[in-house]
Computed example of a mutant assay.
Amino acid sequence: MLEPRGASAPGTAGERSGRRSGADRGTLRYGWTTGACATAAATAAYTALLTGEFPDPVTITLPGGARPAFALAREWLGPDSATAAVIKDAGDDPDVTHGAVVTASVRRGAPGTGVVFRAGAGVGTVTRPGLPLAVGEPAINPVPRRMMRAAVAEVAAAHGGGDVEIAIGVDGGAELATRTWNPRLGILGGLSILGTTGIVVPYSCSAWIDSIRRGIDVARAAGHRHVAACTGSTSEQVARDRYGIPDDALLDMGDFAGAVLKYLRRHPIPRLTVVGGVGKLAKLAAGHLDLHSGRSRVDLAGLAALARSGGAGEDLQAAILGANTALGALRVCDDAGIALGDLIAADARRTACEVLREASVTVDVLVIDRAGTVVGHSDGTC
Rank of each mutant, 00 (worst) to 15 (best):
I168F: 07
N141D: 14
D163Q: 09
P144M: 13
A221E: 08
A221G: 01
N182Y: 03
H224T: 10
P142I: 03
A150I: 02
W208H: 06
S206D: 15
I209F: 00
V152Q: 08
A139K: 05
D163K: 12
C205G: 06
G195D: 13
I199N: 01
G172P: 03
G160R: 05
D217F: 08
T196N: 14
A177V: 03
I209H: 12
E137F: 00
A151E: 02
G173E: 00
I199R: 01
D163P: 07
T231D: 13
D163C: 02
D210A: 13
N182I: 00
V170T: 02
A221H: 00
V143I: 07
G162F: 01
T234A: 06
R184N: 03
I216M: 04
P202Q: 10
V143T: 10
C230W: 02
D171L: 04
C205N: 06
G161R: 04
G169Y: 05
A153C: 09
E175C: 05
P144K: 13
I193G: 11
N141A: 09
A207E: 06
A157C: 10
G198T: 04
G169T: 13
T196M: 01
P144W: 11
R149A: 04
L185G: 08
D210C: 00
R220F: 03
A153T: 05
R213P: 02
C230A: 10
G173K: 08
R179P: 10
G136M: 13
A177T: 03
D171T: 03
G161H: 02
I187C: 10
G215V: 03
G160E: 01
L191W: 07
W208R: 03
E154C: 00
S204L: 13
I193M: 14
A156E: 04
R220G: 00
G136A: 09
P202G: 04
V164W: 04
A222Y: 11
R225E: 14
M147Y: 03
H159P: 12
A158K: 15
D171G: 04
L176N: 14
A151Y: 12
V200L: 01
G186I: 06
G173T: 07
D163R: 06
